[in-house]
Write a protein that binds this DNA or RNA. Structure first.
Lengths: 335, 335
DNA sequence: CTGAAAGCGCTAACAC
DNA sequence: GTGTTAGCGCTTTCAG
């Protein structure tokens, strides 16, 4: 239980005031640099008292009084997903640049936990909540009931009444498939997540449309979890049936798993099967072969999200779509 | 700014009391299931009022009153390091199992940010703080001044006055090097971090001792950052000079970077160079070849840490060392 | 420029 | 079983 040695019961604002021979209001003015001016000499006395007593303001009291914790929260669905973490990191940087502290809460893939985390943070008076939701759909009413600004991240499309940010999945997929087409492939497969709501994922639509535009039928489509293991299974499935000459993987994690399956089977990438992936996470750069991938503009998205939340230039409750950028590496056959 | 539609100014406990025709104390008893009993009929009325008004307790007020936010904090040095995230995830699971919410704060490699995050969380009345520190050393006085229980994670050794947990790096390194020795290697290199304090990292000591015990001189030792890129540089350096027949990498991330360098140079693993690594992160399983690694017992460590923090069976301010387990995969030459 | 004092929403004695 | 009430530590209006 690691207790501090001989703790005097934590100095409060009143102690400081007494010690400095001023009123508690003045201490407040000094601590917050306002809202009222304080005479230099008085300020010095207060500062000295603060140091002497080791006084540290109670943030909970301040949050209660102000109705604001001066902090934003980010709820993520998986703290072990590299892409999500890239995004979380970017959000933190963007929030810091705007003078806001950010705390992270993980919903660990559970809609129930997500809800609980959101409620918990909202009850603590955070100034805003950023959400990368577990599911493809969110309940606008539940979000509204938090009575705190909420902005959705990593979304394929908008949600009525909320600001949201995401990459244009459709356009990205089209670009990826077209690149594979450019390499002369005719039989291109797809690894994609399992459809959680009715609508087709933008990446799947893009895949199909790009192929149709080239008058080609879609190759084998495999549905698997957006995890390394999901990709591994997808890879094995692709080898067992269909065996396309190229695959478009809808996430780097899946692609990494697929590479593993291909290596294991002695199938060479890109010679036997070319791969183009989606996300642009660091793993895509360091796996072998390095993945040609559609990199999501993480920093820009994070900034837009924080702006939308904090009332910056993109504060209207609309969807902000960003373009993925094709990063060419070896897995597509270019190098 | 995504506002909620027509927000009545957030119902408070008094509103609920009025609506239900009871006192505010009773509302409190209902909300908290105690500490006093409430008649079933009354409870129903209160519950109905809560639902009708959409009342949600103000956690900041509760934290102020109780002096406890009923929450623990975990401060990590890098939210993009897979191993750290494994650990963070395990801590979250362990905390949840003990009925505690956990929030995550990232210090992003900066001691100053680490300090700020700790202070911020402490001021919010968290019940305890778990810290994976940026540096090899921590300032016990600064930690004590937080006046909140603190337990250190991912430590090679103990810190006077604090509970801490970590893997026995020395023993792990010895086991790893001995395994390589068992494969007949005579020229074994080491990739390790840059020494941030005076003392040698346990892994380096283990490496040297294991070799000495076999009457072998240490192979080339390369110091690099504990990142994929650090490992990549280390790998290139190893190829340029020395070129051992095996390498012990002190983290999976470094190993992944090394593999990249080896692939690039057409050097085969394990045939040309065998690799054994440390950590046991998921990437070690999915890279190619899969890494033989000393897996840290993440779940057990997380549980010990949370217990130490919350006053469970391992609550004394001492160091808890765990043994890494050798997980055999292909990179060492076994498969 | 400084002080007194009223609450923010909640909990838990203490009364009845 | 329920009501009254005194704060938790802070900010800020209102008086000087």
């Amino acid at each position: 239980m690691t207790k501090t040695p001989a703790t005097r019961p934590t100095a409060t604002r009143a102690d400081v005031a007494r010690h400095a021979g001023v009123s508690s209001a003045v201490v407040s003015y000094v601590v917050n640099n306002g809202p009222r001016p304080v005479a230099p000499a008085t300020r010095e006395r207060v500062l000295a008292a603060i140091a002497a007593l080791g006084y540290r303001p109670n943030a909970a009291a301040r949050a209660l009084r102000l109705g604001s914790a001066e902090m934003i929260g980010l709820v993520i669905p998986d703290n072990r997903n590299p892409f999500i973490n890239e995004l979380a990191h970017a959000v933190e940087v963007a929030a810091a640049a705007r003078g806001h502290v950010m705390v992270l809460a993980n919903s660990d893939g559970s809609a129930a936990i997500e809800e609980a985390q959101l409620r918990n943070l909202a009850a603590r008076q955070v100034d805003g909540l950023l959400l990368i939701s577990v599911g493809a759909t969110v309940d606008p009413a539940a979000l509204a009931s938090l009575e705190v600004p909420v902005v959705l991240l990593d979304r394929g499309s908008g949600t009525e009444g909320f600001g949201s940010v995401g990459t244009d999945l459709y356009a990205g997929a089209v670009a990826g498939v077209e690149h594979l087409l450019g390499h002369g492939h005719q039989n291109i497969g797809l690894a994609i997540g399992v459809a959680s709501d009715g609508r087709l994922d933008g990446r799947e639509r893009g895949f199909r449309d790009a192929l149709a535009a080239a008058s080609l039928p879609p190759g084998p489509v495999v549905r698997a979890a957006f995890t390394r293991d999901g990709g591994y299974r997808a890879g094995r499935q692709l080898l067992a049936g269909g065996r396309p000459t190229a695959v478009f993987a809808s996430s780097d994690m899946q692609a990494v798993g697929m590479l593993h399956a291909f290596h294991e089977a002695g199938v060479r990438v890109p010679d036997d099967i070319a791969v183009v992936s989606f996300d642009g996470s660091p793993e895509a750069e360091f796996c072998w072969p390095p993945l040609t991938t559609l990199a999501q503009p993480v920093a820009a998205m994070a900034e837009a999200a924080v702006d939308a939340l904090l009332g910056g230039p993109s504060a209207e409750p609309r969807h902000h779509a960003f373009d993925a950028q094709l990063v060419i590496r070896r897995s597509c056959g270019c190098a």
